[in-house]
Every structure is written in structure tokens, then in C-alpha cells.
């Protein structure tokens, strides 16, 4: 294995760890809004690391371009579906646990 393979393996395993932690968080968290934070963990660093590892394997090629497109697409769409989900839940009267801090300032 060359050093590129080692870097790629480390990145892929790290990404897998973040994905796994996100999955555990989605089970452990107490309510919908906190679970969304865990889910965004798997969507951001988890997918980015795994796709980066695959791109290192592919080198400069069409596959890397497609991997970049997949990554960009995930990064653009995941906040939009999170917002749609959170907003729909909020409008339907789903109350988050915890308190509401108002205003610019304070606790």
C-alpha cells in the first residue's frame, strides 16, 4: 500500500466513525430537534471524509468530478431538507424541549 492508500483508509475510517456517531446520536437524543443535530453530523463531516477518501483513490479522473458533484449536492440539499423538516414540525405545533431565549442578548 502506498502512502496515498493509507491516507485514504484513515479518511474513510474517520468518516465512517462520524457517520456511526451520528447514528448513535439519532437514537440517544431526547427529541426531534436534537436528533436533527445528530443527523447533520452524518451529513457533513461523515460524507465529506468518505467522499474525499474515494476521490483520493480515484485520482484525477471523471470519477473524482462525479464524487465532487455528489458531495456538493449533499452539502447543498441537506440544510434545505433539515429546514423543511424543522419548519414543518414547528408549524404543526411540535414543541422543542428546553427553554426559549429571546432577543440578541442573554441567558
Amino acid at each position: 500500500m502506498s502512502w496515498l492508500d493509507w491516507v485514504s483508509a484513515v479518511l474513510a475510517t474517520g468518516g465512517g466513525l462520524f457517520v456511526l456517531v451520528g447514528g448513535i446520536g439519532a437514537l440517544r437524543m431526547p427529541d426531534l430537534y436534537t436528533r436533527m443535530h445528530a443527523s447533520s453530523l452524518t451529513d457533513t463531516l461523515g460524507s465529506m471524509l468518505i467522499l474525499l477518501a474515494l476521490a483520493l483513490q480515484a485520482g484525477v479522473s471523471l470519477a473524482t468530478l462525479k464524487l465532487g458533484a455528489i458531495g456538493l449536492f449533499l452539502l447543498f440539499t441537506s440544510p434545505i431538507s433539515s429546514y423543511a423538516l424543522g419548519n414543518a414540525a414547528l408549524l404543526s405545533g411540535h414543541e422543542p424541549v428546553g427553554e426559549r431565549l429571546d432577543g440578541e442578548g442573554g441567558e
Binding site: Y33, T34, M36, H37, A38, S40, L41, T44, L75, F76, S78, P79, I80, S82, Y83, G86, N87, A89, L90, P96
Partner: peptide, 25 residues
């Protein structure tokens, strides 16, 4: 709003009339 949502530990749940309602972990 999307950048705030993309960062884990903060999710924008409402962006009506230019005021954001952000849920923080």
C-alpha cells in the same frame, strides 16, 4: 440560514420575515 443549518449544533427552524428562529443543541 442554510449555513447555520449546515453547521451541526445549530438548526434554523424558521426564517420568516427576516428573523431567524435557531434551535441550538
Amino acid at each position: 440560514a442554510n449555513c447555520i443549518t449546515l453547521t451541526p449544533s445549530t438548526v434554523t427552524v424558521d426564517a420568516h420575515r427576516g428573523v431567524f428562529l435557531v434551535h441550538c443543541l
